[in-house]
């Protein structure tokens, strides 16, 4: 049997198969993955609920959703290093003519796949606490997709340049703290002085949080934050393709 290979520029079939390989298998056989990504946001939700006597729980739910997506996308630092240095899957895929953007999308969507149980839980909580209108839910999903692309790009750029596996764990934890714990995800961004928000804008989680918080509390679209989020997603994606190590 000789089959003709598809030669189109963009290989969606590979991306789907990679999501199956990388995302679905993690959920099916490694539910602890899902639990581990839920542990921190749920602990913070509990903590904020107690400290604020329930007043800030809506912020914590919205922040938890962003945190799950950003945190999961950043785990791709470890995964891309692992695939490259230990499993040699990156080498296998280069020689199979996979492009870095297809690989990046496969990893990003795979992450999104195993974030789904956590997201679902938070969305249910969001409805219980009456945060979500259909409009806010739609906007939240859109924002999460953009955050996922931005954070995955950062993760790929970093992970593909790591030369020792041990470093990837350290870099991953460090970036995870910087990009998900420092930004105002679990409390109103107005709690922070404006000057502190500028450096925090480097994390895609910050403009995402500002945008969703403004819509949730005031019902307004904060164009400033969405523009920043889109701009940095484009920049991070460009940097990932430019500086991420694919062929050598």
């Amino acid at each position: 049997m000789v089959l003709k290979l598809k030669t189109s520029k963009f290989n969606w079939r590979f991306i789907l198969a990679f999501v199956w390989f990388y995302g679905y298998s993690s959920v099916k056989r490694g539910y602890y993955y899902v639990l581990s990504y839920l542990a921190l946001p749920l602990s913070l939700l509990f903590f904020i609920y107690i400290v604020s006597r329930g007043h800030l729980v809506q912020y914590a739910i919205l922040g938890g959703i962003i945190s799950i997506i950003t945190g999961n996308a950043l785990t791709a630092i470890g995964d891309t290093s692992f695939f490259k240095l230990e499993l040699k899957i990156q080498e296998l895929l280069i020689a199979a003519d996979v492009s870095p953007i297809e690989y990046l999308l496969g990893i990003g969507l795979g992450n999104l796949f195993y974030s789904l149980p956590g997201l679902l839980l938070y969305i249910i909580l969001g409805f219980i606490y009456k945060i979500f209108s259909l409009q806010l839910l739609g906007l939240t999903i859109l924002i999460l997709v953009i955050v996922m692309v931005a954070a995955t790009s950062l993760a790929y750029m970093t992970g593909s340049r790591v030369t020792h596996m041990r470093n990837s764990w350290g870099v991953g934890s460090f970036l995870s703290v910087i990009l998900t714990m420092l930004p105002p995800l679990y409390y109103p961004y107005t709690f922070l002085p404006k000057i502190a928000l500028y450096p925090l804008m480097l994390s895609p989680a910050t403009p995402a949080s500002i945008f969703l918080q403004d819509f949730m509390t005031k019902g307004v679209i904060n164009y400033y934050s969405i523009l920043i989020l889109i701009a940095e997603t484009i920049i991070y994606s460009f940097l990932a393709l430019k500086f991420g190590k694919w062929e050598e």
Partner: peptide, 30 residues
């Protein structure tokens, strides 16, 4: 087709998932 030195499968995924991922990468349909 190039199989790298010391290539290892991803422990959590199945042999079928590995092959389908690789074969779609090469351009075959699912």
């Amino acid at each position: 087709c190039s199989i790298p030195q010391e290539a290892k499968p991803a422990g959590i995924s199945s042999p079928l998932e590995h092959l389908v991922m690789y074969l779609t990468a090469r351009g075959f349909s699912i």
